[in-house]
């Protein structure tokens, strides 16, 4: 067994919150620059230029890319040979979020109806997966409200054609329009159960933007969806243009013979995701 102290997990989580808030991943910036070269809509180009400039300012001035620094969603890939000492894992993560958010906006309320701010952006949504090995990987996503509110799930019949699913995903991006802050990154979860498909859709957002699924037929579906989304004309911030999405990432899981769940989790262009391995 390899020992990792809860204190290290707290410190790493706090640092990831700050990094995620301030740093746009390089591959997102590259995708935005490629989009700017292709975009022909005048307002669309202006919005893309602002988004690229925003990333530079945020990085240099250590300012949040977006004022909505979101819900902290933490993926823990926990090696089964790791022993966590000195405290409980989820508590250590929440302590890290609390510290990491000292200079960020606190957007979490304690109860869906009472809606009193928790004051430190806790709790985080934590997904723990036990994996082989003696390392602990933290993947922290700061998820804004706009993209989440435009996300959805549909239980398709098992005989649904791929085309129906493509149309469903394209339609959701179109419906969301500017609310999800396009150009979006589209996480799609296909398969599993009613609860698992949305988890897959969120997990799909962990993938480096623009990297395709390793299965050829799923990668083809990702390309088809991206092409069709970019033909909708939604454009940057819904002001028209060819750049409505930067990437579509699909994750799949085996299905029940009676089911074909499809979940769509939209992510704004301000993609706040960082990882650390302990």
């Amino acid at each position: 067994m390899r020992e990792i102290s809860s204190k290290r997990i707290t410190e790493a989580t706090a640092e990831l919150c700050r990094q995620a808030a301030y740093l746009l991943p390089a591959e997102v910036e590259e995708a935005l620059n490629r989009a700017l070269k292709m975009e022909t809509s005048e307002l669309g180009r202006e919005v893309l230029r602002e988004i690229i400039k925003n990333a530079e300012i945020a990085r240099k001035e250590k300012l949040p890319l977006c004022q909505d620094t979101g819900f902290a969603v933490v993926f823990v890939d926990l090696g089964q040979e790791v022993l966590i000492s000195g405290g409980q894992l989820t508590e250590a993560i929440n302590e890290g979020v609390s510290r990491g958010f000292s200079d960020l906006r606190k957007s979490i309320v304690s109860d869906p109806f009472i809606r009193a701010n928790t004051g430190d952006n806790t709790p985080a949504v934590v997904h723990i997966e036990i994996v082989p090995g003696d390392k602990l990987k933290l993947g922290l996503l700061l998820k804004g409200g706009g993209g989440e509110n435009a996300s959805t799930l549909k239980m398709f019949l098992p005989g649904a054609e791929k085309e129906e699913i493509v149309r469903f995903v394209v339609e959701k991006v179109k419906e969301a329009g500017p609310r999800a802050c396009p150009p979006v990154i589209v996480g799609v979860g296909i398969g599993g159960t009613f609860d698992h498909a949305p988890f897959l859709a969120k997990k799909a957002l962990r993938r480096k933007v623009g990297h395709l699924n390793s299965s050829h037929h799923i990668a083809e579906l990702e390309k088809e969806m991206l092409k069709r989304i970019n033909e909708t004309g939604v454009g940057p911030m819904g002001l028209g243009g060819k750049t409505s999405a930067l990437a579509v990432h699909i994750e799949t899981f085996p299905c029940h013979i009676a089911s074909l769940p499809v979940a769509v989790n939209l992510e704004c262009h301000a993609h706040r995701y960082q990882e650390a391995v302990l």
Binding site: E50, I57, L65, P236
Partner: peptide, 13 residues
């Protein structure tokens, strides 16, 4: 008016 969502560091300037 609309302003660019997610360009908050830029708008903050």
């Amino acid at each position: 008016f609309v302003a660019t969502g997610g360009a908050a560091a830029l708008l903050g300037q």
